[in-house]
């Protein structure tokens, strides 16, 4: 065993990074182009396609909708997912095994099928308004991530700690908030990020649930590409990447990302 990694390993790693980064570089480049069509390398430098995003009302509206859906959906998923993950871990012996699997189902079923099923049941079947249907759909697709990530955090939590607090006179519900939650904080934040980004970038489920007047940003990007070939789509993709990176950066600033890579 030498301390230096093998040259082939370095080469493979470099190729993987290249493979991951090049498309992004191309998109960023195309977004900065001064031309009226998509091109790379950029010809001339301009931010006008970024301005154009906000000039098109459909983009303005869908960005707001996407952020609303991602935030609300993630919050609801946390409200359901944290107690669910707690119960699944705390009563692992008492509860049937399939109950945990239940929460993974939305990502096991092909998303396109799941989206179609939601359209049939929520929008067509129950006549749920579009925004509400989108919110329910996104809550359901991010719930598995929330339950899994927080479960992983709780798996290393010694429930004797909770019992110790209760024995010292702290009521069970209060103990959950003062003792259990602070110790799985990293898991909750990780779950929030993962769920928020998953919702923000979702296409398949949103494709079925968006409707007249209400759409999400990725769906609007698709719609725009079908009609126009200008660099707006590249600049809005950069914006979406930026939003994702911004969420990560906020976390990095406040907590450090190391806790995510456990």
């Amino acid at each position: 065993m030498s301390d230096r990694p093998h040259p082939i390993l370095i080469a493979v790693a470099a190729l993987v990074y290249l493979f991951l980064m090049v498309p992004l570089v191309i998109v960023v480049g195309a977004a900065l182009s001064d031309t009226t069509y998509l091109t790379f390398p950029p010809q001339g430098l301009s931010l006008r396609w970024f301005e154009n995003i906000f000039a098109i009302s459909a983009f303005r509206r869908t960005i707001v909708t996407s952020l609303q859906i991602a935030f609300l959906g993630t919050m609801i998923a946390l409200l359901i997912g944290i107690p669910a993950a707690y119960a699944l871990n705390r009563f692992r012996v008492e509860l049937p095994k399939w109950l945990g699997t239940l929460f993974v189902l939305p990502i096991l079923v092909p998303e396109i099928v799941f989206g179609f099923a939601l359209l049939k049941s929520l929008t067509v079947g129950a006549g749920v308004p579009i925004f509400a249907a989108l919110l329910i759909g996104h809550t359901l697709i991010v719930l598995p991530y929330v339950v899994r990530v927080i479960s992983a955090s709780l798996a290393s939590f010694d429930f004797a700690i909770e019992e110790a607090a209760i024995s010292l006179g702290s009521a069970p519900v209060k103990t959950f908030f003062t003792i259990v939650l602070p110790n799985v904080r990293a898991g909750v934040i990780a779950a929030f990020i993962l769920a928020f980004i998953t919702s923000l970038n979702d296409v398949s489920v949103s494709l079925f649930l968006t409707g007249p007047g209400i759409s999400t940003l990725p769906i609007q990007i698709l719609a725009h590409v079908e009609q126009f070939f200008d660099p707006t789509v590249a600049s809005v993709s950069v914006l979406l990447m930026f939003l994702t990176v911004a969420v990560m950066a906020i976390v990095e600033r406040t907590l450090g990302l190391t806790f995510l890579a456990k």
Partner: peptide
């Protein structure tokens, strides 16, 4: 009586200290 009103001191095998 629920545990938190029993007023019993407990010492656990894994110490069960509050890590935070």
């Amino acid at each position: 009586l629920p545990t938190h009103r029993r007023d019993i001191g407990l010492v656990f095998q894994n110490y069960a200290l509050f890590p935070h």
